[in-house]
């Protein structure tokens, strides 16, 4: 994950950057796994599994603390510039987004715990399949974004970023379905409300995923591709 071929004259700098990258990518891997498990928990109505997922988020929080510490050290001691500066900034921002994804994942898992019968009734809801499809979509997006970030694969990052619109569309359609079903079967409302939250959480995960792809672009090209609309408005 570096755009320059030769290492630093100060070898320790390379090691520290590599270590930070390792931490962030491991964090990404963990979150990816958490999301997969949360989706399974949701599908199975597995409250115990949900508790595991919630507990798993603690480790991610710890990693965030550690990586933030390493980032502060790097900035203070190495005063990185150029691609190094971009790498550190990008990793720092990625950490925040990854941690948020972890939080959203926790929200998804928590639904099972909140429901009276551990969420077993969820399986009976007609839009659960659509929910699973959305979950897998978001999951794939996240995996792809982390991959793009790890390999600095801008083509991949671009593809993921463009897919985000599809994710948003799927979310909206799911939200419509849930709302529609709530009117038909009022007894499902308590569960449905929670699922609305879960859908929102997945949408948020999609947004954070998109951010990750934009960081990759910033790292490689030094171009900030976020908030296009705002920039255009400001220019006009």
């Amino acid at each position: 994950m570096s755009t320059t071929d030769s290492g630093h004259t100060v070898k320790k700098f390379d090691e520290e950057l590599a270590s930070l990258r390792g931490v962030v990518l491991r964090m990404g891997g963990l979150v990816e796994e958490q999301l997969r498990r949360a989706l399974k928990v949701l599908a199975d109505g597995d409250a115990e599994g949900a508790l595991d997922v919630i507990k798993g988020d603690l480790e991610i929080d710890l990693i965030e603390l550690r990586s933030d510490q390493e980032i502060a050290q790097l900035l203070a001691r190495r005063s990185p510039l150029g691609v190094d500066l971009r790498t550190v900034l990008m990793l720092s921002k990625s950490v925040t987004d990854i941690e948020r994804i972890g939080d959203e994942t926790k929200k998804v898992a928590r639904i099972c715990v909140r429901l009276p019968d551990n969420g077993r009734e969820l399986r009976t809801l007609p839009y659960m399949h659509e929910m699973q499809v959305l979950g897998e979509m978001v999951s794939r997006q996240l995996a792809g974004a982390l991959d793009a970030l790890a390999r600095l694969d801008l083509a991949r990052a671009d593809e993921i970023r463009r897919n985000d619109d599809a994710v948003d569309a799927a979310c909206n359609s799911l939200l419509d379905h849930i709302a529609g079903h709530m009117q038909e079967a009022p007894h499902t409302i308590p569960a449905a409300v929670l699922l609305l939250f879960a859908t929102r959480a997945l949408e948020r995960i999609g947004d954070h995923t998109k951010n990750l792809t934009q960081y990759a672009v910033y790292l490689v090209e030094g171009r900030d591709v976020r908030h296009r609309k705002a920039v255009r408005a400001a220019r006009a």
């Binding site: 030769s6 630093h8 004259t9 510039l81 150029g82 691609v83 190094d84």
Partner: peptide, 12 residues
Amino acid sequence: RETENYITGRFG
């Protein structure tokens, strides 16, 4: 590239 190498301490 030369500038990048210099400012990031990757010279020589």
